[in-house]
Amino acid sequence: MIARIWCATATPEGADAYERHFAQSVLPALRGVAGHRGAYLLRRDGSHVEIQVVTLWESPDAIRDFAGPEITAAVVEPEARAVLIDYDRTVTHHTVVVTTAG
Rank of each mutant, 00 (worst) to 15 (best):
M1D: 00
M1S: 05
R4V: 01
I5Y: 03
W6T: 01
W6P: 00
W6E: 07
A8T: 06
T9A: 03
T9R: 15
A10M: 08
A10N: 04
T11S: 09
P12N: 04
P12W: 13
P12S: 04
G14T: 00
A15S: 09
D16V: 01
D16E: 15
D16S: 14
D16R: 13
A17D: 02
Y18Q: 07
E19P: 00
E19I: 02
H21W: 15
F22K: 07
F22Y: 14
A23W: 05
A23Y: 03
Q24D: 09
Q24E: 14
S25V: 11
S25L: 10
S25P: 00
V26I: 14
L27V: 12
L27E: 07
P28K: 04
P28G: 02
P28Y: 06
A29K: 12
L30M: 08
L30Q: 05
L30E: 06
L30G: 01
R31H: 11
R31C: 05
R31L: 10
R31K: 12
G32T: 02
V33P: 01
V33D: 01
V33H: 02
A34Q: 13
A34E: 14
G35F: 05
G35D: 06
R37M: 08
G38D: 03
G38T: 04
A39W: 02
A39T: 03
Y40I: 07
Y40C: 03
L41K: 06
L41T: 05
L42F: 02
R43K: 13
R43D: 06
R44C: 09
R44Q: 14
R44N: 09
G46W: 11
H48I: 04
V49K: 13
E50S: 10
I51F: 01
Q52D: 00
Q52L: 12
Q52R: 15
V53P: 00
V53T: 15
T55H: 07
L56F: 15
L56P: 01
L56W: 03
W57L: 08
W57M: 09
S59W: 12
D61G: 05
D61I: 03
A62L: 08
A62Q: 08
I63V: 13
I63Y: 02
R64C: 08
D65T: 11
D65Y: 07
F66N: 05
F66P: 03
A67S: 15
A67K: 12
A67R: 13
A67P: 04
G68P: 07
G68K: 13
G68Q: 12
I71E: 06
I71Q: 06
I71W: 05
I71P: 02
T72P: 00
A73Y: 09
A74W: 13
V75E: 07
V76A: 08
E77Q: 10
P78M: 10
E79V: 10
A80W: 11
A80L: 09
A80D: 05
R81Y: 05
A82C: 10
A82I: 09
V83Q: 13
V83A: 11
L84S: 08
I85W: 11
Y87T: 09
D88L: 07
D88E: 15
R89Y: 08
R89M: 06
T90L: 10
V91L: 09
V91S: 07
V91N: 09
V91D: 10
T92K: 14
T92R: 15
T92M: 12
H94N: 12
H94E: 15
T95M: 11
V97P: 00
V98K: 15
T99V: 06
T100I: 10
A101M: 13
